[in-house]
Design a protein around this nucleic acid. Structure first.
Length: 598
DNA sequence: GCGGATCAC
DNA sequence: TATGGTGATCCGC
């Protein structure tokens, strides 16, 4: 989720690890830009793993300040996280990784020091040419919004449990927290934090198990609103979206800010959830801006070159989508902490980084970003799919209690492969390359891949090569196993038989849903009878929902049955949310009939 | 094409 | 009781 920054957990502070200044918020990579990662060199481990860590110098991503976390006692959080972590295998692995980063940084600095003035001048000249080229492509004619739901999962849960609004609450379990509400954030509890550490920070913390069907339903409702302002909006994840509202602004003689305010009100009306919005001349800046006045706020970056350059000048590089913890440390080591400095040090950047990384950094310094749907390169597959980007891989992985028995591991591989095969079937794809992923009990990750002679999609086809990869790694002790398919292709002719097989499963699934709905309805019956007003509302929502469903199904004509089933389930749960009560079995039956008719 | 690593949510 | 799952991309082989 956008607002809930992923924090790869705690890391020991290296000499450059102090850089967590200011607020960090999440910045999701804009699809076509993709993450531009600094080069990864293979370096010996341990070069910089000298000093004994203590909590004072312990820099944890969990202490980075976020919306709603300004008054957190960061020293206390640091100390608690350190105390809870320091003896774990996970912590040891974090130290190992940090040592690698430190070594890489040292190498980079050495390289920087060896550059002559003449060389630097030449690189700067090349950078200036690149900057001029980027500048020439600057487009300030579009108005972009980035909408980001506030504490999304937690807020959805609070709809069902209003009593939790005033209490610290987290969605997740002892293993991992996905979202924390704002009450919990006051204690330093945040996403991507292990539950047992969160409980130490806040003993009264309420834990709620994630229910992704609810979040998906809420997400569908928000998308119904987004569609009004940009029918081609790009949903980054369940809780955020990019919208090009240029046409809407023109058609209604409105400013971007006015549209943003209207959109926020619309989302709240449809879902009783709040979101924050950024308004800017490109998608990247809109994303950065959506973070500035969170929660339930909006921020504008004016569409002029001067305003953009001013906005970006003092912006911490970490705020830029695609610059994460490691890139931040690396750039900090070169004396770069703001986007303005990315431009000042353009010669150094051109000299030290790959052409693609340098272009990305310079673009960030200029405040550039996507201004057209589907990415500025227009690289989407032209197969009539519109803005839907074909996936490159599909995977399934699981963490479990430490495992060393080869029999257990082969059983696990079998399970995962079956799961993957089912997912590939429902997606209608087959794969030529298979990858096995193992995480050993000391948290080191290994991947092993094979490319086969042809494409495969059944468990029977995929299990033997996966087992072969696995056996080559034995003996070992692991805590995670994963399987992945890549080099994908659409499942061809044979897929029709598959469709027919899936149809049987669909009916069963529908029947199950309807039965479940009946049970729930019985419980909610008393309420329903007392509140005729809500019934009217429900009826109204259902009419709308039928129309919507029909439209969506028309769009999906020819799709796999499983996709239609998923869509139907979405509509049902969405409707339940909108009416704030359980959908009647009769309503479900009618929805199901509509789905079948298509 | 493979494996490690980074990034995002 | 002890730190997730999915997808993408980049780099250097």
């Amino acid at each position: 989720m956008a607002e809930e920054q992923t924090a790869g957990a705690a890391a020991a502070a290296g000499p450059t690890g102090q850089g967590c200044s200011g607020q960090h918020e999440v910045l999701q990579a804009v699809p076509a830009h993709g993450p531009h990662v600094l080069g990864t060199h293979q370096l010996p481990v341990g070069a910089a793993a000298s000093q004994q860590p203590s909590w004072q110098q312990y820099s944890s991503v969990f202490t980075a300040s976020k919306a709603g976390m300004q008054n957190v006692d960061k020293e206390k959080v640091k100390r608690v996280v350190f105390e809870m972590s320091k003896d774990s295998a996970h912590f040891k692995n974090e130290q190992r990784k940090q040592a690698q980063v430190d070594a890489r940084i040292a190498q980079l600095k050495a390289k920087a020091a060896s550059i002559s003035q003449a060389e630097l001048a030449a690189h700067q000249k090349a950078a200036d040419a690149k900057l001029a080229q980027l500048e020439a492509g600057r487009d300030l004619s579009r108005t972009w919004l980035h909408a980001d739901m506030d504490a999304f999962y937690a807020s959805v849960e609070e709809l069902d449990r209003p009593d939790l609004k005033s209490k610290p609450m987290a969605v997740g379990g002892m293993g991992m927290i996905t979202t924390a509400n704002y009450e919990a954030r006051k204690f330093g509890v945040r996403s991507a934090m292990p539950g047992f550490i969160a409980r130490k920070l806040c003993p009264q913390l309420a834990f709620v198990k994630p229910d992704f069907r609810k979040y998906e339903a809420a997400s569908v409702a928000t998308r119904g609103v987004f569609k009004v302002y940009d029918p081609h909006f790009e949903a980054g994840s369940l809780d955020e979206a990019y919208l090009d509202v240029t046409d809407y602004c023109a058609a209604h003689s409105m400013t971007g800010e006015q549209v943003a305010a209207e959109l926020r009100a619309g989302v709240e009306a449809a879902t009783r959830l709040t979101c924050s919005v950024g308004i800017a001349p490109n998608a990247t800046l809109a994303k950065v801006a959506s973070d500035l006045n969170k929660p339930n706020g909006q921020a504008l970056v004016v569409s002029s070159r001067e305003a953009v350059m001013a906005f970006v000048h003092d912006l911490p590089i970490r705020k830029v989508p695609g610059i994460g913890k490691v890139s931040e440390q690396t750039l900090n080591a070169l004396g770069i902490t703001t986007c303005g400095q990315l431009l000042q040090q353009r010669g150094l950047i051109a000299a030290l980084f790959s052409s693609i990384s340098a272009r990305f950094f310079l673009g960030a310094g200029l405040g550039l970003g996507h201004t057209q749907h589907g990415g500025d390169r227009g690289d989407e597959g032209g197969a009539g799919g519109g803005s839907v980007v074909a996936r490159k891989g599909i995977s399934c992985e699981r963490t479990f209690a430490n495992m060393s028995s080869s029999a257990d591991m082969e059983k696990m591989a079998d399970n995962l492969v079956q799961h993957l095969a089912a997912d590939m079937e429902s997606e209608g794809i087959e794969s030529k390359t298979l990858t096995l992923k193992l995480k050993t009990t000391d948290f080191a990750v290994r991947t092993r891949a094979v490319t086969l002679a042809g494409h495969v999609h059944t468990a029977q086809q995929m299990l033997p090569p996966i087992l072969k990869l696995l056996r080559a790694e034995l003996p070992c002790e692991i805590r995670l196993m994963g399987v992945r398919g890549s080099a994908l292709r659409r499942l061809t002719s044979a897929g029709d038989a598959l469709d027919a097989a899936a149809a049987g499963g669909r009916l069963n699934a529908l029947q199950r849903m309807i039965l479940q709905g009946r049970k729930q309805q019985q419980r909610g019956e008393a309420v329903e009878q007392q509140q005729g007003e809500q019934q009217d509302e429900q009826h109204c929502s259902m009419v709308i929902s039928y129309r919507q469903l029909a439209q969506d199904l028309a769009i999906m004509r020819g799709s796999m049955p499983s996709m239609k089933q998923r869509l139907l389930r979405c509509h049902m749960t969405c409707l339940m949310m909108k009416t704030r009560q359980v959908l009647s079995a009769a309503a479900m039956v009618r929805l199901a009939q509509m789905a079948r008719a298509h």
